[in-house]
Write a protein that binds this DNA or RNA. Structure first.
Lengths: 294, 294
DNA sequence: CCAAAGCATGGACATACATCAACTGCGGAT
DNA sequence: ATCCGCAGTTGATGTATGTCCATGCTTTGG
């Protein structure tokens, strides 16, 4: 039994005529006869009594007509269902992000996105790049925001926002600091731990500026950007950290920045699985992020 | 979009594999690929992300899977529906019958039939042969029981029970009546109206027996068999009528029969439209009647 | 790094589908 | 009463679609 046969049956039943149905469906009348015959064969019953000029549906036809109708409608509805679901942006956005984007970029962007699409729900997991990458590969995440592009085979990396690292500290240290790089050896300095992305960028930068880290007055190593931030706010020392993390403090003047002559840029990427189709809400958020990022 | 495609989709979705599905459905793997591709094309979305060795259903696939499943089930159910309805004998039996079969044959037969199939409901319309025939032709009735076969072109007549007409009356007339046919002229006699089937059979019989109706002591003309029956029970006279109408009275001895030397037989027929398919309950009753009638 | 597993692709074949033309059967009109 | 027209059927024919086989490509596991 086939849907096509049911469509033809429905038309014949409604028109009480094979030839009317053939006109309505734009197929020849013998074809109608053939299909009805096959349908009757597969159902092992007569559906229409052929009375010469007229036809008369049998009780079996009366029985299956509403069912057939509903079936056809349901089938059409599947199409609508897919169409609607892929047009409508809603559902959970389960996203993996590194520290900086997860803490200082995504919250604002998510809020903006949610103004546009109120039916989305965010769940942002903050983890290191390695973990996020793994979970993207194993299809745990659809979307990740990471600071380095590893595993370029399977994953697709789209350049997103760039984070800027700056040298900053409490006013008491910064105000008296001269402009010569050598003076940086004087002030107490806080480091991120070995292996941190921020630490790596910083080291590369210092090397480029020919500043010797070992000569610096390092007074501590802290395990997160926020810990560094709290420490320099408390006057423990100075450090190099994301500008985004201390935006407010810089504006208020509770922390001061000092240009060191070069730029410390750290690009972040939107990472997705190359072969994975993004659900509608992810696709929308992905496009939204790119438009804001560029 | 086709049911076949949905069947394949369901199997692929369940097995999470094109090749497993191909084994399950006994069709080749490339065919599966082709069908899924077409389905995706007609839905304008990806259903499975091909990840090399594995495949992963997309959210759209998750969405339509239950719908597809239900659709397939519904389709199967149509078959069952027809099967069940054509096996199960139930529903209304709307039957047209002439006076004798309608009053004196069908009630008992219907009761017996209903013992076997308690889910049937009888509606017996008593009308003359002409009317029943017309309503059979115009598809008002599926089944009629009539005393003469007219319109043999469209309708099918199956010989059924034969009614026997007998000469009978109250004991006071019959006991003293001799065996010679001439003595019939003596007793008061009741007639059916002109045009009645019974009247016709009677006239033919009397003519064959060389009894002159005009010489008979006719004391009344009544319009129905039951009227005749009530009249002769009341002692108004004798008559010729269906044996079935007075079965009980003959057994009790409240009416007596007298053989007149020949038989007055009146055949009845099961009449159906030649081209009309009988619903299950009609078919069952038709067969039942034939088995009882023969 | 090779082999195996799994989906995609292209060509060959068969079945199924649709069409056309001719036929049958019924009903109404001249 | 015969003819004509409508309606469904039947049979022959071409095309489209479904299906298969062989093969290629990619990923994964040893």
């Amino acid at each position: 039994m086939d849907i096509h046969q049911l469509r033809i049956f429905v038309s014949v039943y409604r028109n009480r005529s094979f030839s009317k149905a053939s006109e309505q469906l734009f197929i020849s009348q013998p074809t109608i006869s053939e299909h009805i015959k096959n349908l009757e064969k597969s159902l092992a019953c007569t559906l229409f009594d052929r009375l010469g000029r007229k036809i008369e549906p049998t009780v079996e036809a009366d029985l299956i007509f509403p069912k057939a109708l509903q079936l056809i409608e349901d089938l059409e509805r599947i199409n609508d269902l897919v169409l609607k679901s892929s047009q409508r942006v809603k559902g959970k956005l389960y996203i993996g992000a590194s520290t900086i984007p997860g803490n200082y970029m995504l919250p604002q962007l998510a809020a903006n996105f949610r103004n546009q699409y109120p039916e989305v729900f965010f769940e942002i997991v903050i983890a290191d790049t390695r973990k996020i990458t793994d979970l993207l590969v194993s299809h745990e995440f659809f979307l990740g925001i990471v600071g380095a592009s590893m595993e370029p085979k399977i994953l697709n990396y789209e350049p997103f926002l760039t984070d800027e690292l700056i040298f900053a500290g409490a006013p008491k240290y910064m105000e008296n600091l001269g402009t010569t790089p050598l003076q940086i050896y004087q002030v107490p300095f806080l480091l991120r731990e070995e292996g941190s992305g921020t630490r790596k960028i910083m080291e590369d930068f210092l090397q480029k500026m020919q500043i010797n880290l070992k000569k610096m007055n390092v007074v501590g190593v802290l395990g997160s950007t926020d810990a560094i931030k709290q420490a320099i706010k408390a006057g423990l020392g100075t450090s190099i950290l994301s500008r985004r993390a201390i935006d407010e403090e810089l504006a208020r003047g509770s922390l001061l920045e000092m240009k060191l002559g070069g730029e410390m840029k750290r690009p972040f990427y939107l990472a997705t699985h190359k072969k994975r189709t993004l659900p509608a809400q992810y696709k929308a958020f992905y496009d939204f992020l790119l438009s804001r990022g560029a």
